[in-house]
Design a protein around this nucleic acid. Structure first.
Length: 430
DNA sequence: TCTGGGGTCCTAGGACCC
DNA sequence: TCTGGGGTCCTAGGACCC
């Protein structure tokens, strides 16, 4: 039996934990650069503010209904997420953290305690210990657990917990669920399925398997099998190593000069290298991309991307920044209003401790060079982890003229002492 | 003025091997 | 008229997820 625990309106709920005045009010959290809605309270949903909707198109509604608007505070949300996950981990031995706000928990063997009682207890405990409200769906496959969770969220009568005990329960639930709501069925597949008379999840479950296999491929066939109670997606207990690492941002205002782009790319490459060391992996390829707004008119629209091989698989910030800068030089076209850029590391391999054997044919890196690099990165990470990211940084990563908009950022309540002190003093001011 | 960021997996097709 | 069989690896693009 799989339980899918999903936090309600997660980012909004995080803001509410530290600002209870937001309870009962319409609240939205915006994407980076204050662009789109990425989390909405129930009240905000009721106002018709759509998921992913660009904020500037809904300015009037936001103002008229005095909607509370927040810039995304991912440091806060990430920390709150680990609190929720740690709480859940206390309930069952096997669990998969599926996303920042969701976890699958294996409740096989909990029949004796009771699925319902266990789920209710999880819900109460997470709420009590973290302040975050969650809904829980239980079923015999992950895909059905997702479906049950959706019912638990949409239908108040469930009180936040929906259990599909057997095939009959599942079929009843599927009959009232649009196929577009099924996990793994996106926009394109929905169009195709609807055009062929498949409207509900139950229609998909009952469709001829060969037909599903042919048009929705192996992934769609798995979805169908899972809807019919055949579990093909096991719990992933250990997170697999990442295969690529990406850092990219939209700019607050368009950037036109190569120097500013170089600083942005240096910054993104630096962040990628830090994530890479956190993963304990080495990168062999660096990709840089830069683009204008996709809403830009033809002659001013541009999307450039190019990949370069690093001479040696590495996790050294300096080597990665150098490579990224070189790629940028080949992509830059003058006169374009650039709105976004990014760096991607790929062809990743785990650090094994025997990397000194990996050298280039013509310019073998002396061992001392690699050892120095490793020690330098250790020192860099130690300083920045103690005094804050960016305390010690390379000179190319200094100017911030490309910075994104973030006008309504909440304090880092759980991770920054200075922000806590700020809260206290502003409270004292009343 | 203003439209996010970070991932994974699958397939098809081309280039290449013997 | 007619041109094998069996593979691997790589990449681009599409689709999906949160």
């Amino acid at each position: 039996m799989f339980a899918l625990v999903d936090c309600n309106n997660f980012y909004v709920s995080c803001e509410r934990v530290f600002n209870p005045g937001l309870n009962g009010r319409a609240v939205v959290v915006l994407s980076n650069n204050d662009g789109c809605f990425i989390s909405r309270s129930d009240e905000a949903k009721a106002l018709g503010l759509p998921m992913g909707g660009p904020a500037f198109k809904f300015r009037k509604i936001l103002e008229e209904h005095r909607v509370a608007v927040y810039s995304a505070n991912f440091v806060l949300y990430g920390d709150m997420s680990s609190r929720v996950m740690n709480t859940l981990a206390g309930f069952a031995p096997a669990m998969e953290v599926y996303s920042i706000d969701e976890a699958f928990v294996d409740l096989t063997g909990f029949e004796r305690i009771g699925f319902e009682a266990t789920a209710r207890s999880m819900r109460r405990t997470v709420r009590r210990d973290t302040g975050i409200p969650v809904c829980i769906g239980l079923a015999t496959t992950k895909t059905l657990a997702k479906l049950a969770n959706r019912k638990a969220k949409k239908e108040v009568a469930f009180g936040g917990v929906c259990i599909l005990h057997d095939r009959e329960d599942a079929r009843r639930a599927m009959a009232s669920m649009e196929v577009s709501q099924v996990w793994g069925i996106g926009r394109r597949h929905t169009e195709f399925l609807n055009a062929n008379g498949v409207r509900t999840a139950l229609d998909l479950a009952d469709a001829p398997t060969e037909w599903v296999r042919r048009h929705l491929h192996i992934t769609g066939a798995r979805v169908q099998a899972e809807l019919n109670g055949n579990s093909c997606l096991p719990l992933e207990l250990v997170r697999p190593l990442k295969q690529s690492i990406c850092t990219s941002r939209s700019f607050g205002t368009a950037v036109t000069d190569e120097a500013s782009l170089g600083q942005a790319v240096a910054h993104f490459a630096t962040k990628c290298a830090l994530k890479l060391r956190g993963e304990k992996e080495l990168a062999s390829l660096v990709t840089v991309f830069l683009c204008t707004s996709p809403f830009e008119e033809r002659p001013r629209r541009y999307y450039g991307t190019r990949t370069a091989a690093l001479p040696v698989a590495t996790q050294d910030t300096l080597a990665i920044v150098r490579a990224a800068q070189a790629v940028l030089g080949t992509l830059f076209r003058p006169g374009m209003p650039y709105k976004k850029a990014g760096v991607i590391l790929s062809a990743l391999t785990p650090v094994t401790g025997t990397e000194q054997h990996q050298t280039t044919l013509f310019e073998p890196e002396p061992l001392q060079v690699q050892e120095r690099s490793a020690r330098l990165m250790q020192a860099l990470d130690a300083v920045n982890s103690r005094y804050g990211q960016g305390t010690l940084r390379i000179a190319a990563d200094t100017n911030t003229s490309w910075k994104q908009r973030q006008e309504k950022l909440s304090p880092h309540y759980t991770t920054n002492w200075d922000d806590i002190i700020e809260v206290v003093t502003s409270d004292e001011r009343g």
